[in-house]
Amino acid sequence: MSVEAYMEACNAYYYATRDPLGTAGDFTTAPEISQMFGELVGAALADAWRRAGAPGSAHYVELGPGRGTLAADALRVMRPAGLTPSVHLVETSPILRAAQEAAVPGARHYDDLSTLPDDGPLLLVANEFLDALPIRQHVAGAERHVTLTPAGLAFDRDGPILETSPVRDEAVKELAERLVRQGGTALLVDYGHERSAPGDTLQAVKGHRFAAVLDRPGEHDLTSHVDFQRVAEVAADAGASVAGPVEQGSWLERLGIQMRARALANAAPHRAADIEEARARLCRPDAMGSLFKVLAIHAPGWPRPAGL
């Protein structure tokens, strides 16, 4: 089967059968590291909404919302700004849907973008969503496949690799077209590279460690680095405006994460060291600060989101 089909099948089973997050899982995302991340996402979306004229019938949308932690933190910050959007979560995992329902009561669930509301602006966030969408790999113009050999699974060809992701392109195109029609803004946060470049970025993670991509199919989280140049090109071709990408650490600092960290530490001095450790993990170049990027896609009539 193609690398694309292999990745799709493995991740479909993986996410349907477990909660992969946290210390007991396979990886930890930014919202699980600190409430500061979700709060600043919420503040950025609320600020964009207010500068756009505070239009009614706004919808908060999250793609791949994990346990609902980011949504809960973002919505808590939106309320004092006068923003109480309806909540729509794109999630296929029944295990994660249950966690999201507990964290964000009343949220509506969807299997994909196609059935989201079309009657108002979208305030959307996708944190570590695009990296899990399947990719194709090509070697010397031929598509790479996974084959079964007497020794187990193996790739059918090796050499310099070029990666593409038609599924990712289609998701970004559909999102951008919706924003152009309905208004709104989307914040895409993920790890990846600013410029398109060849190379093998397919990776597997298990128990917070890298694992072999072809080992124990369906038991590892399979991801690839996001090509942000390609994402921006697809969105612009669909008529949307694009801002970024910028490094996550720089973006959070521009939004005031240091001030927020001080406020949390002053309110709970016994947690000051933990709060600073979380801030550093989100922002330091040798942690998540440089590898993770933030790209905004917004309707042409909407303002550029803060920090970008």
Rank of each mutant, 00 (worst) to 15 (best):
L113G: 12
A273Y: 03
A211I: 02
L162A: 15
L96Q: 15
D169M: 09
P303D: 08
P134W: 04
L130H: 10
A273W: 01
K173R: 15
G199H: 01
Q100V: 12
P166Y: 06
L252A: 14
D200G: 02
D119V: 14
K293C: 05
V180N: 13
Y110S: 10
Y6T: 12
T201V: 04
A211H: 01
P285T: 06
E4V: 07
G192P: 05
T223H: 07
V294C: 01
P121L: 07
S250H: 12
A9K: 05
A154P: 00
E101L: 14
R271H: 09
G120A: 14
P285I: 04
D169P: 05
D47S: 14
R18I: 06
C10I: 13
C10F: 01
A48I: 07
D169I: 09
D221S: 03
A278Y: 06
F292R: 01
R76P: 04
A211P: 09
H59C: 01
R168Q: 13
E143F: 06
A171H: 03
A71D: 07
V87Q: 02
P80N: 04
A16H: 14
Q35N: 01
E219N: 05
R281I: 08
P285G: 06
A71R: 02
L264Y: 06
A204H: 01
R230H: 14
A240F: 03
P134N: 14
S2L: 03
A72E: 06
D158F: 11
L179S: 03
P150R: 12
